[in-house]
Simulated assay, not measured.
Amino acid sequence: MVPGSIAARPRGARRSLLRGAQRGRGTALVAWDSEVEPDHEQCAEQLNTHLGGRWVPVRVGSMACFHTSGGRVGYFTVTSLSPPEALSQFTDITVTVWELA
């Protein structure tokens, strides 16, 4: 596990809670470096022009675009992280997943 990193496999939920040392798994993730939330087209462009990974480093406020195994595009925003020394590691995220066109 990599502390301070996350990979999400959200499934259509608006809000999700991931367990683990601020890391999970995903199909493709690309960090979103703007402070403004991306729209569907921006995330699709980011995923098509940047090499996606299975995890991204995060902090509170971090955003990342993702592609699901079902072909959907979405993004998440990290809303809180448990301290690295905590016995239970939790990452709260807000998730948006767009419907297929």
Rank of each mutant, 00 (worst) to 15 (best):
M1F: 08
M1A: 14
S5F: 02
R9H: 07
R9T: 03
R11V: 07
G12N: 12
G12E: 06
A13D: 08
A13F: 02
A13P: 01
A13Y: 02
A13K: 11
R14P: 03
S16K: 07
S16F: 06
G20C: 13
G20D: 00
G20H: 01
Q22S: 14
R23I: 14
R25T: 15
G26W: 00
G26Y: 00
A28L: 07
V30E: 05
D33S: 14
D33L: 14
E35T: 15
E35Y: 06
V36C: 06
E37T: 13
E41S: 15
E41M: 10
Q42P: 01
Q42S: 11
A44E: 11
E45L: 15
Q46R: 15
L47R: 09
L47D: 02
N48M: 14
T49R: 13
L51I: 07
R54P: 06
W55A: 08
V56S: 07
P57H: 12
V58R: 00
V58F: 04
G61S: 13
G61T: 08
S62M: 08
M63D: 03
M63H: 07
C65E: 02
T68H: 01
V73A: 02
G74L: 09
Y75F: 15
Y75S: 06
F76L: 14
F76W: 12
T79R: 13
T79D: 09
S80H: 10
L81R: 00
S82C: 09
S82L: 01
P83M: 11
A86H: 09
L87G: 08
Q89F: 04
F90R: 03
D92C: 01
D92T: 05
I93V: 15
T94F: 01
V95S: 04
T96G: 00
W98A: 11
L100D: 02
L100A: 04
A101C: 05
